[in-house]
Simulated scan of single mutants.
Amino acid sequence: MGKVIFVGKTGVGKTTLIQNLRNETIIYKKTQAAEFYGQYIDTPGEYIENPRFYSALITLSFDADVVALVQDVTSEECYFPPGFGDMFNVKVIGIMTKVDQKMHRFEKTEQYLIEAGAESVYGVSACTNEGMDDLIAELNSVI
């Protein structure tokens, strides 16, 4: 079975998303180092926030079939530079998290992810399950 690596800044919901995908109780925790949960690889936000850690992301991607760039729709910041996904030798998708929030920037967030190299973009809420079926179908088709 293939693996998915989740990449995004601190607080975008990578761990929460993985807990939802694994049908686990959602409990907030700060990821301190790369963690492996079956077919999911959770990375610390610092790996995208500090370009010196990009090599760690590249190395982790060798174990993956998909790189998921995760961006919070309520954030005005984007840490993914244009073409970021080109450094990976696997499929790159974008995931917009927290789509259930009132203060959102769907169009801008989708644009960030596409410019970063996402082949497709999915909007999800791990808390309400909005959009999760489409994301799961995509992941199942690849992994």
Rank of each mutant, 00 (worst) to 15 (best):
N20I: 00
N20V: 00
N20Q: 09
N20D: 03
N20A: 10
L21N: 00
L21G: 05
R22Y: 03
N23T: 10
N23R: 14
E24Q: 13
T25K: 15
I26N: 03
I27A: 10
I27K: 12
I27D: 11
Y28Q: 10
Y28V: 12
K29Q: 13
K30Q: 15
K30W: 06
T31F: 02
T31V: 15
T31R: 08
T31L: 07
Q32P: 13
Q32I: 12
A33N: 11
A33M: 11
A34W: 05
A34E: 09
E35V: 14
F36A: 12
F36C: 11
Y37Q: 13
Y37C: 07
Y37E: 13
G38N: 03
G38D: 09
Q39W: 09
I41N: 00
D42F: 00
D42C: 04
D42G: 00
T43Q: 04
T43F: 05
T43L: 05
G45S: 06
G45E: 02
G45V: 11
Y47S: 09
I48A: 03
I48E: 02
N50Y: 15
N50K: 13
P51F: 05
P51C: 11
R52N: 09
S55A: 05
S55N: 09
A56M: 14
L57R: 04
T59S: 13
T59N: 10
T59W: 10
L60H: 10
L60E: 12
S61I: 14
F62E: 15
F62T: 13
A64R: 09
A64S: 14
A64N: 03
A64M: 01
D65L: 12
D65V: 03
V66S: 06
V66A: 00
V66Y: 01
V67T: 07
V67I: 06
A68I: 01
A68T: 05
A68F: 03
A68E: 02
A68H: 01
L69M: 12
L69R: 06
V70S: 01
D72G: 00
V73G: 06
V73L: 04
V73A: 07
T74E: 06
T74A: 13
E76Q: 12
E76F: 10
E76C: 11
Y79P: 00
Y79K: 06
Y79Q: 10
F80G: 03
F80Q: 09
P81R: 03
P82S: 05
P82G: 06
P82I: 02
G83K: 11
G83H: 07
G83D: 09
F84N: 14
F84W: 07
F84G: 15
F84K: 08
G85K: 02
G85F: 09
D86S: 13
M87Y: 08
M87A: 05
M87G: 04
F88M: 08
F88S: 04
N89L: 15
V90C: 14
K91L: 05
K91R: 14
V92S: 10
G94P: 02
G94W: 01
I95E: 01
I95L: 03
I95Y: 06
M96Y: 02
M96N: 07
T97Q: 04
K98Q: 04
K98V: 06
V99A: 00
V99H: 06
V99R: 01
D100S: 07
Q101D: 07
K102V: 08
K102Y: 05
M103C: 10
M103T: 08
H104F: 03
